[in-house]
């Protein structure tokens, strides 16, 4: 119901209409004041914590100084953005972000689908085995990133369990922590360890929606297992796959802060310094607030553009012309 729908103003006189409107509002406030009392703290909270910070985003176009504050600082237009493009580290952080995001996507995106398909092949009479495997696979999702990275520091140290195995096999110790060439494998590996099981939930749910008759019919028609996967299972997953793909494409440019920050060391900055960690270091550690805000804004705009582009491509390529919107 639209606001005031169904109430026809008696006269077209604007003052009388305003009067009617006020009268209705007063009556509404009298009758439904409790609803207003409920929503008020919610609106205040959203304003303070979600909307008002957007007002502070203007410092990306200003030369922020602490004394003058957000409002009083001087406008500098796009200077902060030009500064970022000319920054000697611009190329490095953008490249690191994209490379890390790309490998994370390419490796960690398909694995939950494969895992779900394999789990789906477990025989019906082994339901318990399937459930236990599922439960175990979700577990790493609940482990804090800081714990995972902390364990990586322990397991991959010189005398850690991984090097104990390496010494037993090859006789040599491998320097893994603080070595640039190992940063990406460690990063992506930890994402995979944490996310494969959890990521498969949505595909497993989609698989339960495939009627068993389809499999039975396929068997009667003499379809091999691979053909059943290819012609029954995967088409059943396709709608979900296109949605999750669109949603995960933006992760290429927005590599999460926590994992990269905790896993990186100054020695590995050449591969591990990503946009999010650079914003933190420049903006909050070196107090270059305007610059940090500008880089952050740049990052979100690119991420948003990527989602729109991915949605467009998915719409173009699939036959039903269906994207996310």
């Amino acid at each position: 119901m639209a606001i005031g729908a169904g109430v026809v103003p008696k006269k077209s006189d604007p003052r009388s209409r305003l009067h009617d409107w006020r009268e209705r509002l007063e009556k509404d406030l009298r009758n439904n004041w409790q609803l207003y009392v409920m929503i008020l703290p919610v609106l205040v909270g959203f304003f303070l914590f979600r909307f008002y910070p957007l007002y502070g985003l203007q410092i990306a176009f200003k030369d922020y100084n602490i004394v003058a504050g957000v409002r009083g600082s001087e406008w500098v237009g796009l200077e902060n953005f030009f500064k970022f493009v000319e920054d000697p580290f611009f190329f490095r952080v953008v490249k690191n972000t994209v490379v890390l995001g790309f490998w994370t996507l390419v490796i960690s995106y398909p694995l939950p689908i494969i895992f779900a398909v394999l789990l789906n092949e477990v025989k019906q009479q082994h339901g318990l085995f399937k459930r236990v495997t599922q439960s175990i696979s979700y577990l790493p999702h609940f482990v804090a990133v800081v714990v995972i990275v902390g364990l990586i520091y322990d397991f991959f140290s010189f005398d850690g369990i991984v090097n104990q195995i390496a010494v037993a096999l090859t006789g040599d110790t491998v320097r893994i922590l603080g070595a640039s060439e190992w940063f990406r494998p460690l990063y992506v590996g930890s994402v995979v360890w944490q996310g494969v099981g959890w990521g498969s939930i949505i595909y497993l749910a989609a698989l339960t929606g495939i009627p068993p008759e389809l499999y039975e019919a396929a068997i009667v028609d003499g379809a091999s297992r691979w053909q059943r996967i290819k012609y029954v299972t995967l088409p059943g997953l396709l709608p979900v796959i296109s949605v999750t793909l669109i949603l995960s494409v933006s992760s290429i440019i927005s590599v999460g802060f926590e994992r990269a920050f905790l896993l990186q060391q100054p020695a590995t900055y050449n591969v591990s310094d990503v946009i999010a960690t650079y914003v933190y270091r420049r903006g909050l550690i070196k107090f270059d607030f305007s610059y940090g805000a500008a880089i952050g804004l740049f990052d979100s705009v690119v991420a948003f553009a990527l989602v729109v582009a991915a949605n467009y491509i998915v719409k173009r390529t699939n036959e039903d012309r269906e994207g996310l919107w």
Binding site: P53, L54, G56, L57, A60, Y64, V279, Y280, A293, L297
Partner: peptide, 13 residues
């Protein structure tokens, strides 16, 4: 979302 720095400054204020 406003991003890290504007949010930080707002909460600080």
């Amino acid at each position: 979302s406003a991003g890290l720095i504007p949010t930080y400054l707002t909460y600080q204020s």
